[in-house]
Nucleic acid binder design. Structure first.
Lengths: 204, 204
DNA sequence: CACCCTACCAAGCATTTGCTTGGTAGGGTG
DNA sequence: CACCCTACCAAGCAAATGCTTGGTAGGGTG
């Protein structure tokens, strides 16, 4: 049972079978939730028997693990670039928000899985990194908010904790209705979201 | 097996055992999700054996059904009052939002269950009413928004669909972090949310 | 041709899950 | 005391679920 080979043992012809299966699993996890997706569901969707999945992966957990870890690494790389860039705090915040809508567009399954199952998964040692990264995430967003208040770009009469949660939720919850390839592009959605967030919806 | 008696067969001494069990189930459903809460979990939390639950309820589904249906009836009664009241569209919208934060405070479990499991449950005939009420909900909120735009109270340069989802999500997602009896009261949270929503977070 | 490797099948096992069945303790009522 | 009702227990069943084991078809390589 060597099984569960390393991610993409080869490097030639199109998406490997392993990558295909992972994408299928991701879609199902995103739709039904991790715990409510059975290995038989995944196998059925792939046209194979459930046992055959274990030729490619150690366990069902390994699949989400790989999906979430890979996705988050990419996202944080973008965040780090933005944080290190030369902009005002508010401009950084805007960039981070746009980058997040982009993630919803480009990595829809992973974002949905994270939104729905991270709390549950974080309860296992294996997924301890979810907690660490969540703290890192919160520190970054909250920090940008505080700097933007300090720099005078944002109102100072609001509860920062509440504003933080407001923004975070508003952005990420969009994964529940946004569909890649739909009427509005991720950029258009981000534009309007930022307009509402910054200027409000009331007239004048 | 008459079993699964009508809600609260008696009418005297404090919360009936049945009501207690329902509250326990609600808390667990809210925490872990409906499908991830087993009847044994509920029974354990209540200090009885799982089979004993079936003296009070027909099925696990009956429990969520009763929880959600009862809650929604109350909520829509409030919405109807507001809609029928004598206020401007924007004032109605504000009232509806405040009423929703109140629901998060007073019926935390039910709101959480609805947020997490409504999509899944709506797939069953028994829960068809969830779809109907969702349409009614959407019609009401969206209608108020349109009227408020028409009356000149709200900006007219935004995508109404997007604004609708923005508000809806922003309000209800709060159930994930708001805790009744916490630092901020539901009213205080509603105040700040409305301030952000209407005026935005940017300065000036 | 012999060998090996990838991707799969066929069968099944242990555990968990929702629910059923038949029974019982204990309090109230005639 | 006889009777009944509520709230439970004890035991277990059928289905679903994650995963294991041993095997095989088929293509590539020496």
């Amino acid at each position: 049972m060597s099984a569960a080979s390393t991610p993409d043992p080869v490097g030639g012809s199109g998406p490997s079978r392993r990558a295909e299966l992972l994408a299928i699993a991701g879609r199902l996890f995103a739709e039904r939730g991790f715990r409510n997706t059975t290995v038989r569901d995944i196998a059925d969707a792939a046209g194979i028997l459930s046992g055959s999945l274990y030729h490619h992966f150690d366990s069902k957990e390994s699949m989400v693990d790989e999906l979430l870890d890979t996705f988050q690494q990419g996202l944080f790389a973008e965040y780090d670039d933005i944080e290190a860039s030369d902009r005002t705090p508010l401009a950084k915040l805007e960039a981070v928000i746009r980058s997040s809508f982009d993630a919803i567009d480009q990595h829809h399954s992973e974002v949905a899985i994270f939104q729905n199952d991270a709390t549950y998964l974080a309860g296992f040692e294996r997924f301890g990194y979810l907690i660490e990264r969540n703290e890192r995430f919160e520190k970054l967003w909250r920090g940008l908010l505080q700097e933007a208040v300090a720099s005078g770009e944002l109102r100072d009469d609001l509860d920062i904790d509440l504003v933080y949660r407001f923004i975070r939720d508003t952005v990420w919850v969009a994964v529940n209705w946004y569909r890649p390839g739909g009427a509005l592009s991720a950029t258009e959605v981000a534009d309007q979201y930022l307009s509402i967030l910054l200027k409000g919806i009331s007239r004048g």
